[in-house]
C-alpha cells in the first residue's frame, strides 16, 4: 500500500519536470565528469578550455591528480611533469618549468607555466652536461646568489633527468 502511494507521488511529480525539460538534463550534467583544462605559457596556449578526464600535477605540496568537481585550490608547481589524460584515453606528458595551477569551482583547471615542452623535445645529453656544470658552481666559491641559482638549476635538471628515464 505504501509503495503504491509513493509511486503515485512519483507519477504526479513527473509532468512538472517535463514542462521544463531543460532543467531535467542540461549540457552541464552530460559533461560533469570532465575538466575544462587551460594550459597556457606566455607565448602559447597548449590547451584552451579543452575537456579532459584527469590531470596529474607535480605541486610543491606533493603530487596530485585532479578530476572533475575537485575542491577549488591554488597550487604552486614544482619543475616537473604534468600528465593529461584526454577524453580519447590518450595520455600526454609535458615538462613544465614551474608556475601555478588553479582549480576553479566549476571543474575548470588553469595551469600557467613559463616553459612547457613534451618529453621528446629534451636532449638527455644536454641535461647531463648542465648537471656537471651546475654541480661545479654549487661546490665552488662563487657568490651566494650564484650558488643559489646553480641549486635551482640542479633541482630542475634532476627532475628532468628522472622524467626522461
Amino acid at each position: 500500500m505504501n509503495s503504491i502511494r509513493l509511486s503515485r507521488a512519483a507519477v504526479r511529480a513527473c509532468p512538472a519536470a517535463f514542462r521544463v525539460p531543460i532543467q531535467c538534463r542540461s549540457y552541464a550534467d552530460a559533461v560533469a565528469d570532465k575538466i575544462k583544462l587551460s594550459l597556457s605559457l606566455p607565448h602559447q596556449s597548449i590547451y584552451k578550455s579543452t575537456d579532459v578526464v584527469q590531470v596529474n600535477l607535480a605541486a610543491e605540496s606533493g603530487d596530485m591528480g585532479v578530476l572533475a568537481n575537485h575542491v577549488p585550490s591554488i597550487e604552486q608547481l614544482r619543475p616537473g611533469i604534468v600528465e593529461i589524460i584526454e577524453e580519447s584515453g590518450g595520455i600526454k606528458q609535458f615538462f613544465l618549468s614551474g608556475g601555478f595551477a588553479v582549480v576553479q569551482p566549476d571543474s575548470q583547471l588553469s595551469i600557467n607555466a613559463v616553459e612547457g615542452f613534451p618529453l621528446e623535445d629534451f636532449s638527455p645529453d644536454a641535461v647531463r652536461a648542465q648537471i656537471t656544470e651546475a654541480q661545479k658552481i654549487v661546490s665552488g666559491s662563487g657568490s651566494e646568489q650564484d650558488t643559489a641559482e646553480a641549486k635551482i638549476e640542479l633541482e630542475v635538471l634532476e627532475s628532468l633527468q628522472a622524467s626522461l628515464k
Binding site: 614551474g98 613559463v114 616553459e115 615542452f117 623535445d121 629534451f122 644536454a126 648542465q130 630542475v156
Partner: peptide, 10 residues
C-alpha cells in the same frame, strides 16, 4: 632560472 634551464635542455 628554471625556465632558462628547461630551454637549455632542449
Amino acid at each position: 632560472i628554471a625556465a632558462r634551464t628547461v630551454r637549455r635542455s632542449l
